[in-house]
């Protein structure tokens, strides 16, 4: 069936009313989530874009859901600000809506938190074509049911996101990265555990298995050298210091280390889960945010292994069944039924 395109709220509503089964798509950087299944019509939202409001002094912006993250970040950069949850695949064209639907954060989430910590509000079209708003456009708000948080990781199950509001922060004035090889997984894990528990305010803390840590610092130029030195002392290694580290981390958050792998997946990891994960036949990978977030490239057998081990994951590319396990029936099904009673959207 031909692809639909919606470039306004009214067109989204019309598409929802006319088609029994829809799959929203931004720029398609996560094809496992945006490719229409049997009987579904793709709803292309890449034309529903643009920043609607941005007051740098408020640390808040609102944009259409189809706006590319890159476009938003360019506007923020002009005012020395950034999206602290560091949305992945920005350089590949990822949109705000796709990022929220997939529930993705990148390596710099280590410093201030992930997507769920920064989303402030949403306007979406529910399964009956009704426009619903949740949250707000201020950094603090406790009024009404928080539909914006429901959208995080929803895969579009409750509605088509039209507008999104986020909190942003000032970007650190300077950054530097320390890369240290620690001679084995156990040693690397011990170092990781140690750093996680200390108030070091790291921008990123990644484990490249088996034994390399990459630590990014951000702050005033006047303090960075001293903080780097303290890190080197803590780790008992000089390591390798990158002062021009922006391009490197752009590559990391674009998941360029997964290029060439047939299947890309996000795995919510934990320190105690890493040894188990490391025993599975996984491809190229990187544990971000102190080991809490794994992005991994897989061959089909690796994906089977994850599933057999019962480890929750989300496939971004290369498989039909993206979400494992499915959401908890009792609560999810009721909320889904309230907002999408006819099962028009994914996870129906």
């Amino acid at each position: 069936m031909a692809e639909l395109r919606a470039t306004s709220l009214a067109e989204v509503q019309e598409a929802v009313r006319l088609h029994p089964r829809l799959r929203p798509r931004g720029s398609g950087t996560k094809p496992a989530l945006s490719t229409p299944r049997e009987g579904e019509v793709a709803l292309d939202l890449s034309g529903l874009k643009g920043i609607l409001e941005y007051e740098p002094e408020e640390f808040v912006f609102t944009a259409y859901a189809g706006t590319p993250v890159e476009e938003v970040e360019a506007a923020l950069r002009a005012h020395g600000q950034y999206l602290p949850f560091h949305p992945p695949l920005a350089g590949k064209g990822a949109t705000l809506g796709g990022t929220v639907a997939a529930g993705l954060s990148g390596p710099m989430r280590e410093r201030f938190g992930g997507l769920r910590d920064f989303i402030l509000g949403v306007r979406f079209v529910d399964g009956e074509g009704r426009v619903v708003r949740g949250g707000g456009k201020v950094v603090k708000n406790a009024a009404g049911f928080p539909f914006h948080r429901l959208m995080v990781g929803s895969l579009g199950a409750f509605g088509v996101m039209v507008e999104l509001s986020f909190k942003v922060f000032p970007h650190p004035r300077a950054t530097a990265t320390l890369r240290v090889a620690l001679g084995g997984l156990e040693k690397a894990m011990a170092a990781l555990e140690r750093l996680r528990g200390l108030p070091l305010d790291l921008l990123a803390l990644d484990l490249l298995p088996p034994a390399t840590l990459e630590v990014r610092l951000g702050g005033f130029p006047g303090s960075l050298e001293r903080r780097l030195k303290r890190l080197q002392e803590l780790l008992g290694r000089e390591g390798e210091v990158l002062h021009e580290d922006e391009a490197h981390w752009e590559g990391v958050r674009d998941l360029s280390f997964l290029e060439g792998s047939p299947v890309w997946a996000k795995v919510p990891s934990r320190l105690d889960l890493i040894p188990t994960l490391e025993g599975l036949p996984l491809g190229p990978r990187r544990y971000m945010a102190g080991g809490e977030l794994l992005y991994v490239g897989l061959e089909p057998e690796g994906l089977h292994a994850l599933r057999r081990a019962g480890i929750p994951h989300l496939v971004l590319k290369g498989a039909e069944e993206a979400l494992f396990p499915p959401p908890p029936e009792a609560f999810f099904r009721k909320v889904k039924g309230a907002l999408d009673p006819k099962g028009r959207f994914p996870l129906g």
Binding site: G103, P146, L155, H313, P325, P327
Partner: peptide, 22 residues
């Protein structure tokens, strides 16, 4: 029901996040 998980990241709708504030 159990909503959310023990780590900082999850997959699927953030139902724990939605419950908070209701």
């Amino acid at each position: 029901v159990r909503l959310g998980g023990e780590g900082l990241e999850g997959v699927g709708p953030d139902l724990a996040g939605f419950f908070v504030g209701t």
